[in-house]
Design a protein around this nucleic acid. Structure first.
Lengths: 122, 122
DNA sequence: TAACTGTGTTGCTTCAAGTAATACAGTTAT
DNA sequence: ATAACTGTATTACTTGAAGCAACACAGTTA
């Protein structure tokens, strides 16, 4: 349910965070669902619990999950208000890729087409 | 002409690379232009020459500039064939941001609108 | 032709971030 | 009580970016 690319330069804890959001968008994770424990997740992914814990802590900070110490972790309500998505950061990252594409000679129409394809694939 | 955000988590040498591409797209840097030397750039940006050198090396690898040892560095022809843009990487990065947006409840139309705004701002 | 100046390069060190290993503390069920 | 689970905190290791200094190459000039 959680796919990690160990060869990626993207930190494992960030990949976990993203996979959670992806699973929520896809409806695989639903509000109130109990989330697999830090240790089990670490065991399955064959990584240290510290890394999983770091991911959970950040997910909680963003309001994606709720964690009760010594009890467990649950998917939070997708109260769209809580999604403290840093729009500023997303804009910057998007801009980075658009500069790359425009420099490579890719026009707006082709970019829009690519965006649609990717968005629909989620 | 080169803007660096020292507080950014993005490596300085990557920011230099991006700024070069941006200036080329904007027409500020043109084919054949002599590029400011490694030392001067380092002095202006108040960073070490090795960081600038690293950026230049990567830009040359991508065919964006041409460097002649002991002579200087020049903007290469935008032979669109040389733009060894790693489309695979761009796709991945774009997908990352789209997941973030979709999870936050942003619809395709709003995304397209944002993309157009950003692309046109370049 | 020797010295000087401007160019990019390379090696060593420092520092921050991601990851790992381990120990700690609270909850639940037997 | 106590065993078996939960998440948390601390410490150490590894890696990559960046700073600093010494280097190597090419052109110019006295």
């Amino acid at each position: 349910m959680i796919q990690i690319d160990y060869k990626s330069d993207k930190p494992i804890y960030e990949q976990i965070i993203q996979q959670f959001k992806l699973n929520i968008v896809k409806g695989i994770f639903k509000e109130g669902d109990k989330v697999i424990s830090v240790r089990k997740m670490a065991s399955i992914l064959d990584i240290t619990p510290s890394t999983v814990s770091k991911a959970y802590a950040e997910l909680e900070r963003q309001g994606v999950i709720e964690t009760i110490r010594a009890k467990g972790t649950y998917i939070a309500g997708s109260g769209l208000q809580a999604q403290d998505i840093s729009m500023e950061k997303v804009r910057k990252n998007l801009l980075d890729e658009l500069i790359e594409l425009k420099h490579a000679g890719v026009g707006l129409e082709q970019v829009q087409s690519l965006v649609r394809e990717l968005y629909d694939s989620i």
